[in-house]
Design a binder for these strands. Sequence first.
DNA 1: AGCACGCCGACT
DNA 2: GTCGGCGTGCTC
Length: 721
Amino acid sequence: MFEYVRVALDVPLAGCFDYRVELATAADIGRRAVVPFGNKRRVGVIVETVAEPAGQYAIKPVETILDDMPALPADLLELFHFCADYYQHPLGQVIHTALPGRFREPAPFRSKEAQRYQAVDAVALRQLLPARAVMQHRLATELAHSRSEAELRALAPGAWKVVQQWLAIGWVKAVQAVPPPFDPADAVGPVLNAEQQTAVEAIAAAEGFQPFLLHGVTGSGKTEVYLRAIAAALARGRQVLVLVPEINLTPQLETRFRARFPKVSLVSLHSGVADGERAAGWVAAATGQARLVIGTRLAVFTPMPELGLVIVDEEHDSSFKQQDGLRYSARDMAVYRARQRGVAVVLGSATPALESWHNAEIGRYRRLGLSQRAVVGAEQPEVLLLPTRRQPLQEGLHRHSLQAIGERLARREQVLVFLNRRGYAPVMMCGECGWMAACRRCSARFTLHLRERVLRCHYCGLEDRLPPVCPGCGNQDLRPLGQGTQRLEDLLIARFPHAQVLRIDRDSTRRKGSFAAALDDIHGGRADILVGTQMLAKGHDFPRLTLVVVVGADGGLFAADFRAAERLYAQLAQVAGRAGRAEHRGEVIVQTDFPEHPLYEALAQGDYAAFAASELAERHRASFPPFVHQAVLRAEAAEIEDALAFLRQAATLAPLCDGVELFDPVPAAMQRLNDRERAQLLLQSPHRGRLQSVLADWMRALRALKGVKVRWALDVDPLEI
DNA sequence: AGCACGCCGACT
DNA sequence: GTCGGCGTGCTC
């Protein structure tokens, strides 16, 4: 047959490496191979079999072809090729980013984690258990069906220990898992409203590749639509892939999915999952044992032979874009996969990315709208734009806001004060000479953290003791300027001494489990006023919360970044959605110097379509995405001039063609970060294909450059420029 | 990326 | 006389 195989290795080189084998067949494509490389051994993935190696090399033999896991299926390999081409990243590195870490070791994967367990007789087992052993009863009930170690461990802290005892006694046995066919009768949900019904039917009826943009306001029951669409796909005997933006949101959604589909084998994949377990989950998906995969962006690369539906929740979220290494967009890869496999993909959001909204506008995506809150009687919160210009404020809070907070407290309701800036004050300034505390390693000012008595850089983490006097002039009058969550917290404690004030930001929840504890306090009614950053905005329901006060949002209105408004709208809509439930209509107060700004007006009307239309018109005028496609070449060096010089040289090498525009190299918005000076070069074009072909040639030329001492990387479809 | 080879300053 | 600095080049 074939004498040679082409292996993709995790090295920053564009090409693959050929090795000799005694007998290679097409079945080896997608397998892992241990090969000698330089003077050590490495593991790679066979991407091709070839009759004759390319070029004149001293071809070495493959050491072993591992068959410890299912070979990467052809569609996944094709996805990797696409990803490598599109993001101009070496194929070997794409594959190694996409695979669970466990598969990067040059050793066979022996998975006890992939093993599944089941009770010999669950009913008899339950009769043997003492009535008081609640956890054991639950465990026994679960074990009526085959479960993985991971699933069992997730049930309760001591669950796995008990299972091991039962295994020893023989009440539980390891089984060869055969996924039970999904029975729709097992998944019963609430009655849908008309809009939800329409959406579910459209998704279930889709044939072949069909992208949907599910635009649903907060509380409109998007998740219920997902659940129904998932049930329909499972009932057709298909697997389903669900992507969520953050690890924090997976447990919630996972719980809800498990509750709805108790017998369905579900695998959760994110960076919080241990290596072995992730590998086991990957294998379970690849073999078709797992029917439902839920995970963060890395889960988009899970092999699923019977994939029938892809869902991307909160599709606008920037965490779907990886910000280093392979800078891929999991949302875009999800759409590509759906196209590849000829299945439906649902992009869900209350505030879709303007790229997605535009795709719906031009008919590339089909829009499904959920405009009502799903719970009968629940209404969208009322938004009040409170003008603060030339108004006396108390530590940034308007008299009216304080009064509204007081009223809610009197009614024993919860209030959220939202300020997306942690610390005590963002600036520490000398009243005499104007000196400001700044980070030595970044072009950023220090944030004052008064409680810990430190100045801290929010970009690199550098800390400094609080200077007793101004280092510039020796003056003692050092003033905190502006406000952060700590300062707001202090004010609210002073102003409402009988209320429990709970601050929730990255500082207050640094310790493991403290965020969960805070959520517990909120639900248990042990918090009256929440002060928090965007951590609080996402995905959590607080039934007693009826008022949200937004402070200090204006900064996002006039930021240099053309996506700032889009992000601000999404953030405010999200935090506004925390206010109010069925019994009480929520209220949102946005303190602003610019109440007449169109963004706030659209927000107050709950009219995302209006905001999107005006924003897209502006993007069109200014030739910004989605009307052009962009790529940014980023460079960093110890001296800014070196980075700029490299980019200037790179610019001369760009094989420009008609309709592809190259801008001048400029220092990055945050020029200095962690002692590195950064600069960038923007390339854009209305034609994705032309941009792509320019990039391919350009990268070849840049990689051939010798003696380059700056670090550089290309970012295709950058979120920040 | 690693990891070699390779040619110039301060040490047992 | 060597140890080791990191510049340049290679990995099928």
